[in-house]
């Protein structure tokens, strides 16, 4: 393929640029030195063992997992309603309603964070993990809708009608036909929103009160140079974990499309 030759060189260079931080990350995670700088001094796993001994970290991990699991379930549930409505029905001011729901996709997170903060404090709600969840559900839902819409869209409407025609009720049609066919999309949506929530910093920073979440913990550690190698180790674990989750999510997304007999048209967005 001579035609794409230069493009390919460029593309590989670009991928290198994209992956540069991820490639460098494990280098420092396994580097012996306390200072994050080149040249590397020697191989060590001590930062990983140090990581396991951090008491705040385990609290932060627990908090983040709780937030991420709850947010992903809630966001996916809300996503199912909206995706189903937008792919199946015409209704008044549809564009306006869907636009509002999808707005967090482009809205800077800090705006979401401060506006929620103002309202919650105004209502006298004390900040907790639940207030973070409120914000995370808001920003995860558009991603869930994007994934679920493609799952619902590749679902031929006559499949539902056929089941109904063959004597099933609306509920049993949903259980026997729709749910199995969009299940891969639901799993993919859960995984993606879990990943987003786990990684989200600003909203948690504003709305978590005194409870640390994983990104808030990481951010606070950047101030202490001696703590940074541990963060590199933590980062390595997180990157491996999220690549794993994403691969699973992508697997389910593709299987979902294949299952419903559709054509794969692209990535997550």
């Amino acid at each position: 393929m001579m035609k794409g030759g230069w493009f390919k060189v460029y593309a590989i260079g670009y991928l290198l640029f994209l992956y540069a931080p991820i490639i460098i990350l494990p280098m420092f995670a396994f580097n012996d030195a306390t200072v994050i700088a080149f040249p590397l001094t020697g191989f060590s796993t001590r930062w990983f063992s140090a990581m396991l001994e951090q008491p705040t970290l385990s609290i932060a991990v627990k908090n983040s997992l709780f937030i991420a699991v709850t947010s992903s379930i809630l966001a996916t549930t809300l996503g199912i309603f909206a995706a189903r409505a937008s792919t199946r029905y015409r209704f008044p001011v549809k564009a306006g309603i869907m636009g509002l729901i999808m707005l967090p996709l482009v809205l800077p997170e800090i705006i979401v964070a401060v506006s929620l903060l103002v309202v919650l404090l105004g209502l006298g709600v004390s900040l907790s993990l639940w207030t973070v969840i409120l914000g995370h559900v808001l920003i995860c839902t558009p991603f869930c809708i994007a994934i679920l819409s493609s799952a619902f869209q590749s679902l031929d409407q006559s499949l539902e009608e056929a089941a109904y025609d063959l004597g099933e009720s609306a509920a049993s049609t949903f259980r026997l036909i729709i749910l199995p066919l969009v299940m891969p999309g639901i799993i993919s949506s859960l995984l993606i929103s879990f990943t987003i929530s786990l990684d989200e910093f600003i909203i948690a920073f504003f709305l978590a009160g005194t409870e640390p979440t994983l990104p808030v913990f990481i951010f606070s550690q950047f101030r202490f140079p001696q703590a940074v190698p541990v963060i590199m180790a933590l980062g390595t674990v997180l990157v491996v974990l999220s690549i794993l989750l994403l691969t699973i999510a992508e697997y389910f997304r593709r299987r979902g499309i294949a299952k419903a007999g559709g054509k794969d048209t692209g990535g997550f967005l």
Partner: peptide, 10 residues
């Protein structure tokens, strides 16, 4: 898309 989904802070 992969790098996009890995810890932004880090």
């Amino acid at each position: 898309t992969i790098p996009f989904w890995t810890s932004y802070l880090i």
